[in-house]
């Protein structure tokens, strides 16, 4: 697989860029929440906007706008598209 070479943390994605989820490095309740929102491997995600202080950041997932803190987003590995 060539994905391992090019994956980046979701938190480093610039506004407007689109990516595809590769893996979730999360545990417990948060992992469940993220999966339940439809953020499963293969799902396209677009970075939409940052809050006034730069954190959290809102992402568009399956037509839903979801805000994540940078700590949590950095545990989600994505493939930029």
């Amino acid at each position: 697989m060539n994905t391992a070479l090019t994956t980046i943390p979701l938190s480093t994605l610039g506004i407007g860029s689109v990516c595809q989820i590769v893996s979730l490095n999360l545990q417990g309740l948060l992992r469940r929440r993220i999966l339940d929102l439809g953020m499963v491997p293969g799902t396209p995600v677009q970075c939409i906007r940052k809050s006034p202080t730069g954190d959290p950041v809102a992402y568009m997932v399956r037509d839903t706008l979801i805000a994540l803190r940078s700590e949590d987003a950095s545990q989600i590995h994505v493939n930029p598209m």
Binding site: L30, L65, L68, R69
Partner: peptide, 11 residues
């Protein structure tokens, strides 16, 4: 420590 937060921003 601060834990995680997932917040939905509805239309």
């Amino acid at each position: 420590e601060a834990s995680s937060m997932v917040l939905e921003l509805p239309p």
